[in-house]
Every structure is written in structure tokens, then in C-alpha cells.
Design a binder for these strands. Structure first.
Lengths: 169, 169
DNA sequence: CTTGAAATTATGATGCA
DNA sequence: TGCATCATAATTTCAAG
């Protein structure tokens, strides 16, 4: 009696800014801090009825304010204590295949983010590795060995400080 | 009768890798995909009793495999459609204040991440802005104007592809 | 690890401003 | 339109086996 949750059948395209009132903003803040907070608790904290709160949360999802809820995993506990940012410069003729190349990168184990960068005409790969050897092999095998890649530059991440992010005031 | 949830009184420091069995890995995958999946649904999908599943989830939190659950917010819907990565190089004498400087940066609206980079002896700020003017003002006011900062280099993010991340096979 | 039962929560229908 | 109340189904949670 549950199986697949439709989540949001008619998702509004995240084209423009969505108007939020104080209740919406409070809900967003709570869900950003702890996505598993029960609906009834959110309702009480923001001062509305649970049914109203449920409607608000669903609307926030439908309007693209909330795109999803995810567990935040600990890299060290999962055996990937070493993070790096790898800046990649492509061959000037290989720009066409950029999309599919990055898509493939994004599916590799340990790849946290891929950023396409405008301006420098290259991209940045954020990766978590099990060891320095693993990192080196990742860069050599998946980046340097690719025909599309002209050069790479690897920077070790000494510390990662999550910002306050997108939370509304 | 709920108020503050203690979450994990005796949190194990994320010093080393944690051994996971198939059930743990399946739970992690489900929570990474949708952190609001009901415990009973997780239990059925991974093939254990709900009470067992609840214990597993709590252990995953205590051991640092799961650090938290967060709503994924849409930058466009929240009025910050423009993302950038700003590489910052510090004055060679200002390294001591690096920590507090980055801490302060991380609390500014729109700052998604701050990465301390070893090797290049500088750091990278991932920021979401409301407009090009807003981005420019952010860089000038919070970075260039700081005494500690020697130089910055801003790259616009053309597209952000989330990787498969840390999910176990 | 499971069963089972009590407390808590989610959710939709309905009525009110 | 937006919200609250209420009733019912589902879930969480813990004690025992």
C-alpha cells in the first residue's frame, strides 16, 4: 500500500523565483536542518495545523523550492577520507562531447559533483577517494586518459565547510 | 512532548571506515535517494522488520555513516539562479586567520560551500547569487576588500551535475 | 532478529472564515 | 482560497520473546 510515491506529478518548472511567506520560510529552514522532522512537529513549530503544513510542504516541492530530501553521508565512515577538486581543460575541438563525457564521469564511484564552468571553458570534478593511490588512478584513468581532455590540475581538499546555503532569512 | 531530538548522544567520531553489511548498504542507498522514506517502507524494501530497520538507521547515524538528513533546495526557486566558484589566494602572512575568515564567509547568504585547499594554499568559495551584480558585490565586498585576500578568480557555473556521490555499490 | 501492542503520526474529507 | 477540525489509516517505537 505504498510502493512508489508519485512525489510530484505536475512539477512546476523552476523557471523563476517563488514567493514565500513566513510559514513557508520557516518550513524550509526546518527541513533543511533535518529532513526527517515529522510533519506534526513542523506544524507545531511554525504554528499551523498539520494538514496545512502537509499542503505547504507539497507545494514547496511542486514549485521547485524543495527538490528532494537526501541523507548526508560521511566520507570517512564510508572509506573515502580524501577529497579533491580536479580542474579539467578540454581539447578545443572536443567541446561537443562535453555533456556525455561529464555525465559518464558523474556516475563513477566517489564523484560528488561535476561543475561545468563558463568562461574558462572547462569543468571541475569534486571527488572523494579511498587513498592517494586511488585518487591518482581516478585522475589518470578517467581524465588524463580521455581523448577529450587536454590537461588536469588536482587540488586536495584540506577541509570542507558547508555554508549556510540557500536557507531564507 | 518532543521538542529537541537528541539524535545521537554518544556519536562515534568518524575516524575510520565502518563495516557495512548488505542491509546497511541498502538502507543507505534508500535514504540517500529519499531521506523521508518511512521506516516501514525501508524495512520492507531491505527485507527486515521495521524495528530492526530503525536500529540500523540509528546505528548508521551513530557511526557517522549518515551525518544528517537535509532538504535539497532549488536555487532558482529561491531567487539565486547564478552560481559561481571563486578561487581565493591569501596574503602569505594571513594564513593564521584563515579559519575564522572562512567561518565568517560560510555564514553569508548564498554561500553553499567553502573548500580549504592544500597545495595551492588558498580556498574555493561556492556561491549562489541573485544576479551578476549581486555576485560582483559579494566578491568585491567579502573577498577583495578583505585584508587577508591577495587575489580572487571567479568562474561562473554553467551547469551543476550531482555525482553518484558516496553511495555504496 | 522478530512479534505484538501502545503511542504517535500522516492524510484526506468536510466545514468554516 | 486557505485553513482547521476530525476520523481513519499508517507508522514509530519499545518491551518481550
Amino acid at each position: 500500500m505504498d510502493e512508489e510515491r508519485p512525489v510530484a506529478a505536475n512539477m512546476i518548472r523552476p523557471a523563476g523565483e517563488v514567493a514565500l511567506d513566513d510559514v513557508d520560510r520557516a518550513i524550509v529552514r526546518i527541513l533543511a536542518a533535518d529532513a526527517r522532522t515529522p510533519n506534526s512537529t513542523i506544524a507545531r513549530r511554525v504554528g499551523v495545523a498539520p494538514s496545512t503544513c502537509l499542503l505547504r510542504v507539497r507545494r514547496l516541492q511542486e514549485t521547485g523550492v524543495v527538490r528532494g530530501f537526501h541523507a548526508d553521508l560521511g566520507p570517512e565512515a564510508l572509506g573515502r577520507p580524501l577529497q579533491a577538486l580536479v580542474s579539467v581543460r578540454l581539447q578545443s575541438h572536443a567541446r561537443a562531447a562535453l555533456g556525455s563525457f561529464a555525465e559518464r564521469l558523474a556516475t563513477l564511484p566517489g564523484v560528488l559533483n561535476v561543475f561545468f564552468l563558463a568562461g574558462a571553458n572547462d569543468f571541475l570534478v569534486h571527488v572523494a577517494s579511498t587513498s592517494p593511490e586511488d585518487l591518482r588512478e581516478f585522475v589518470v584513468r578517467n581524465l588524463n586518459a580521455a581523448r577529450e581532455v587536454a590537461s588536469t590540475e588536482t587540488s586536495l581538499v584540506f577541509e570542507h565547510v558547508p555554508g549556510r546555503g540557500l536557507q531564507p532569512d
